[in-house]
């Protein structure tokens, strides 16, 4: 069964169109990530699915039932917020149990579900504490626990990691992936962080200006972006875009090449001087400024001695390059 179907969903705030004609299907157990720059409408889309906002037009179906007029409480969803939004006056245990209690769930069922979530999220030592006495990572786990005990058909995560520091973010990311594997429920996850999207998703939905730019698995989008926006948004460091004309290349307005597909050679097609070097230990990012003033990032694996100011030439295999027209659409070369 499908967990969620969106049909031609539009949302406007007054004259501003925030979502335009969104169509999407999420299968049971699928992990779908909405990704895009801030203001692309990804959080609004999540709120429309949750029922916190009404769609201006179009249909939202959850588990096969149209829910446009169904209040959030009855949609069978559970949401984790960026701000956590824990209830500050209640203990961790009470935070998780409150909604179940209000629905009249039997006490032993509540106790069992809270115990299960507690075990899964390792919240045992904190059950009687209040949110104010928890660290950011612990609060985040309580927020997830509050959703888990609901056993929803659909989990909604709204940028759940953006208030955590970098090390905790990675650990929590892995926890969320593990959670998804063990719950096998459908999850929709909103983020502006392409790393989170790439590492967590079964399916990524790239949004821009309220429109879906492309939907596909992480590697599909990485290897086969539909347009310049998707190509530039996924991957870090980001893809380089060069004026195709200066390369005497095979047509198109812009040539895109990923940093790891460039190599430093003695006689390459891209010539310039080294403007900056980022030594990361495991790999090295070299930023080369070309004669035309374009900045090109090269990713070299391992450590690479390189001084700023020296001249450098770069080259790539044509097979690794992407071509885009002036409007940013991908030009796919005819198979020879």
């Amino acid at each position: 069964m499908t967990a969620l179907v969106l049909k031609d969903v539009c949302k406007s705030f007054g004259a501003v169109d925030v979502l335009r004609n969104i169509d999407l299907t999420v299968e049971d157990g699928e992990f779908v990530v909405f990704v895009g720059p801030s203001g692309c409408g990804k959080s609004t889309l999540l709120r429309v699915i949750a029922g916190l906002e009404d769609a201006t037009s179009g249909d939202v179906e959850i588990a096969g039932a149209r829910v446009n007029a169904v209040p959030p409480a009855k949609r069978g969803i559970a949401m984790v917020f960026q701000s956590y939004a824990l209830y500050p006056h209640l203990t961790v245990k009470e935070n998780m149990a409150l909604a179940l209690k209000q629905e009249g769930t039997p006490r032993d069922v509540i106790a069992a579900r809270v115990a299960e979530a507690t075990r899964m999220l390792e919240l045992g030592p904190y059950l009687d504490r209040r949110p104010a006495d928890l660290s950011g990572g612990q609060r985040q786990r309580v927020a997830i626990g509050r959703a888990v005990v609901r056993q929803p058909k659909l989990f909604l995560f709204d940028e759940p990691l953006s208030n955590l520091d970098a090390s905790l973010r990675m650990a929590t990311r892995i926890e969320i992936a593990a959670l998804h594997r063990s719950l096998s429920a459908a999850m929709i996850y909103v983020t502006h962080d392409q790393t989170e999207a790439m590492t967590l998703a079964d399916k990524i939905v790239v949004l821009r200006d309220g429109r879906v730019e492309q939907i596909g698995s992480p590697m599909e989008l990485y290897n086969n972006p539909a347009n310049r926006f998707v190509a530039g948004f996924l991957g870090a460091p980001a893809m380089n875009f060069l004026d195709a004309a200066t390369l005497g290349g095979p047509g198109g307005a812009t040539l895109g090449i990923r940093p790891e597909h460039l190599r430093v050679t003695d006689a390459g097609r891209i010539k310039g001087t080294v403007a900056h070097v980022e030594n990361l230990g495991g790999d090295t990012n070299i930023i080369v400024e070309t004669g035309a003033g374009e900045r090109v990032t090269v990713r070299v694996f391992g450590q690479y001695p390189c001084t700023v100011g020296r001249s450098a030439a770069l080259d790539f295999d044509d097979a690794d390059a992407f071509l885009f027209d002036a409007a940013g659409a991908r030009l796919v070369a005819e198979p020879a």
Partner: peptide, 13 residues
Amino acid sequence: QGQWEAARALGMR
């Protein structure tokens, strides 16, 4: 407002 929304999105009327 997040408190209202959290409760609503977690099944409370």
